[in-house]
């Protein structure tokens, strides 16, 4: 059941920000609606008592994917389908495109947005691990100010971020790498499609001869939110690639996750399988 509410469809970012600033009421952005509407339907506390829904689907500025010398810039309301079909994204952000292709089903991908995925910040948000290894930055605006920060800093906890009620994510900026990076995205679900991630992993690495020059590692679903592993990355950087190293890296990641989060109901399965699948992924990337 959807309670009575007000609804607005701004045509510009400015207009949207003004609406978000409407005082004395609960204003919420409506992008794809795949989290918001289902949340309202299921009676989720996170989506209760909304006074005004601001549908940002009529704002062309939020729909673009462009690039300049330093960045690939994804508008704040780009759907997964738009991302998957975009030539720039396909060429330059293969991990993100791969992750996007595994989100929900086609009907969901036609509506759900990349921004919505990390603003909702479920543990299993498929796009988060790739965005993290791409060192994504996000641009947030409000009526009177704006800021830019790393996505990693924006995500604070399960279903929690630094977004304020009057703010809108208007851009995702992904720095272009100046060297060639190899990487891959892995997702484990219970079904072959329309599956919620049990484990997701993203790895991006610069490999020089038989050494890991630089590696970036991120996980989803096995951690309370998508996370990077800076200590592990630092430990691995510069090391000679060997079967032993990759196994150790996989084990260290599992130990780190367990130490940080303790054992949960699913850990008995996820922790060993994480090590196996992360090892498989590392083998593939470093092969």
């Amino acid at each position: 059941m959807i309670p009575e509410l007000q609804f607005s469809r701004p045509k510009t970012i400015r207009e949207a920000l003004n609406l978000l600033a409407t005082p004395g009421q609960n204003n919420r952005i409506l992008a794809g609606g795949t989290d918001v509407i289902t949340g309202i339907q299921m009676g989720s506390k996170r989506f209760s008592r909304i006074d005004l829904l601001i549908d940002i689907n009529q704002i062309p500025e939020l729909k673009t994917i462009t690039e300049n010398k330093a960045h690939i810039i994804i508008g704040g309301n780009v759907t997964f389908t738009e991302l998957i079909e975009n030539p720039i994204a396909r060429q330059k952000l293969p991990l993100l495109v791969k992750a996007a292709s595994t989100v929900g089903n086609l009907q969901i991908r036609n509506r759900a947005t990349l921004t919505g995925n990390f603003v909702n910040n479920a543990p299993c948000a498929d796009s988060v691990p790739p965005l993290l290894v791409y060192d994504a930055l996000i641009k947030i605006e409000s009526q009177n100010s704006g800021r830019e920060l790393p996505l990693q800093d924006f995500l604070t906890g399960t279903y929690k971020t630094l977004i304020k009620p009057n703010e809108l994510v208007t851009e995702i900026r992904i720095p272009k790498a100046d060297t060639e990076l190899r990487g891959d995205f892995y997702k484990l679900g219970r079904r072959k499609s329309v599956a919620i991630s049990r484990i997701s992993l993203a790895v991006l690495a610069q490999i020089e001869e038989d050494k890991i020059k630089e590696i970036r590692i991120a996980s989803g679903a096995v951690t309370p939110i998508g996370e990077r592993f800076p200590d592990l990355e630092k430990w691995a950087n510069g090391q000679k690639i060997s079967d032993e190293l990759l196994k150790l890296l996989a084990k260290k990641m599992a130990e780190k996750i367990t130490k940080a989060n303790g054992l949960r109901w699913s850990s008995t399965y996820k922790i060993p399988v994480l090590q196996q699948t992360f090892y498989q992924l590392l083998k593939k990337v470093t092969d």
């Binding site: 609804f7 469809r9 509407i37 339907q41 829904l53 689907n57």
Partner: peptide, 16 residues
């Protein structure tokens, strides 16, 4: 179909 794309009409508010 919304503008030729398959979508779930249970997740679309009429205003959209």
């Amino acid at each position: 179909l919304l503008n030729d794309q398959a979508v779930n009409s249970c997740l679309l508010l009429i205003g959209q």
